Amino acid sequence: MKMIKYIAVILFALSALSCKTEKQENGKLNVVTTTTMLTDLVKNIGGEHINLQGLMGAGVDPHLYKASAGDVTKLSTADIIFYNGLHLEGKLVEVFEKMNADVVTQVPLGESLDKNTLIGSDYFASNYDPHVWFNIQYFKQFAGEVLSTLSRKDPKHAENYKANAEAYLKKLDTLEAEIKATIETLPKEKRILVTAHDAFNYFGKSYGFEVVGLQGLSTATEAGVQDVQRLSQFIIDKKVKSIFVESSVPRRTIEALQAAVQSKGNEVTIGGSLYSDALGNSGTEEGTYIGMFRYNVSTIVEALK
């Protein structure tokens, strides 16, 4: 057993050494991100001047994500780690705490937000809803933090980072104008969003939707029979036309809710699958933050009309 542990340590050290050598050869910062939303953001600002690695892929639930041995190597040999914080990546906290702060710069982007503006939560140790990327204004603040950090760590390319950030912020402005126009086509009384878990509260607050999730803020919690029955009656009372599954949450939770509504002699359709805690597949429009947001809004509005 001791020999196995020793070999593991040696392999880790060799892996770390190879990563550092790569960085020294190409002269770029090694940057690691956790969620797909942050990977897309940092990619847009860092561009070709950084070595970027995202830990999580499409459809991955950050609430339940555990670091693999390969992830630990990436994190340990990074110059900068950008993560959401606010206890979203709950199972990675212990790994972050073991990182050498003098060697690896850790940036929990959610912690930079004004806590007085955040939505409270009893489900998280931070007592805040961590799904802050569904407020585009918050995501713009994330962009500012990323720009500041990259420029400080790599002043040689500060002007490049600034230009990239300014261009991306303009795209976010355009996105927000588009989705507001789309939402305006949906009557206010129909703006009721029922999903698998409470990931869309910031979206609802920003755009005037009443949001109800079958599970709590974290997918680590399970919806019980009483939750299903309570929400099914809500759907009937409010005459909700459609409910939504989420890409990072098992479909069966919403199907159980649909069945409960039907058992009471009423109908509700599944209006589509929304991207909540992760983006779509890499290389697709929904694999970007902007494309994901545009797709979600279009799906919601069309299903609820």
Rank of each mutant, 00 (worst) to 15 (best):
L304S: 12
V104S: 05
C19I: 04
L175R: 03
E222M: 03
A8H: 05
P108S: 07
F82A: 03
T269Y: 03
R251C: 01
M99F: 02
D122C: 00
L150D: 13
G144K: 05
F82W: 06
V261T: 09
F209P: 08
K188L: 07
K66Y: 09
A260S: 15
K43T: 09
Y289I: 04
E210V: 14
L88Q: 05
A8T: 12
Q262G: 00
N135E: 03
G57A: 05
P187Y: 09
K171N: 09
K98Q: 15
V228E: 09
Q106A: 07
A58N: 04
K153M: 14
G54E: 13
G208C: 08
N296T: 12
L88W: 03
M292W: 04
P108D: 10
T284D: 08
V297N: 06
L214G: 07
G85F: 11
I236R: 05
I7S: 01
E97I: 02
G265H: 08
F142I: 01
T219Y: 07
S273L: 01
K115G: 13
N164Q: 12
G120R: 01
N116S: 15
K153S: 10
L172E: 12
S247G: 14
Y202S: 06
K5Y: 13
G291M: 10
L64Q: 10
K305S: 11
H63D: 06
E286A: 09
S68Q: 10
T284G: 12
V240L: 06
S148L: 07
V132W: 09
L14N: 01
F139G: 08
S68P: 07
E286M: 01
T149L: 08
T73I: 15
W133A: 01
I183M: 04
M56D: 04
C19Y: 14
D61H: 03
A158H: 11
T21C: 10
T219M: 06
F244K: 05
S298R: 14
P62V: 02
I243P: 15
G144V: 01
V301L: 10
G59R: 04
Y161F: 15
K241T: 14
A177Q: 13
